[in-house]
Amino acid sequence: MEALTAIVIGVLTAASVYLMLARNFMRFLFGLVLLSNAANLTIFASGRMTKGAPALVPYGEDAPIGVVGNALPQALVLTAIVIGFGLLAFTLALAFEAYRRMNSVDTDEMRFAEPKEDTSK
């Protein structure tokens, strides 16, 4: 399954890069969501994928029996998902506020911090 996941990750990354290169800020946000998913899957797949054996210690035992899913990448991905959400929310708020101020979602028009140089000089 790692190979198939790698392909899924590639498609996710390609789509997110394509969306993040768009002029529309909302597409950029979609790209960000997809990129988080790609990153999470990458961490998950690098820790190897085990089918149907959650990383739980059965009652009455001191350690899991047999091979179970790798818990470490799961812990990393779990927090990454929540942080990714925080990042998305922040970016969304930024986009929203930018839209309210500049009345545009076209990033080519958003030149508040780096205004166009006056080239006539």
């Binding site: 996941t5 990750i9 768009a22 797949a45 979602v105």
Partner: peptide, 28 residues
């Protein structure tokens, strides 16, 4: 006026996607 689907973007996106897949395959 805000459509910006360009061919160059698609090529770069495809390249990044393929490279990512290759890297993940190498890692696993």
């Amino acid at each position: 006026g805000t459509q910006s689907h360009s061919f160059a973007n698609a090529v770069l996106a495809g390249a990044v996607g393929v490279l990512t897949t290759v890297v993940v395959l190498l890692v696993v």
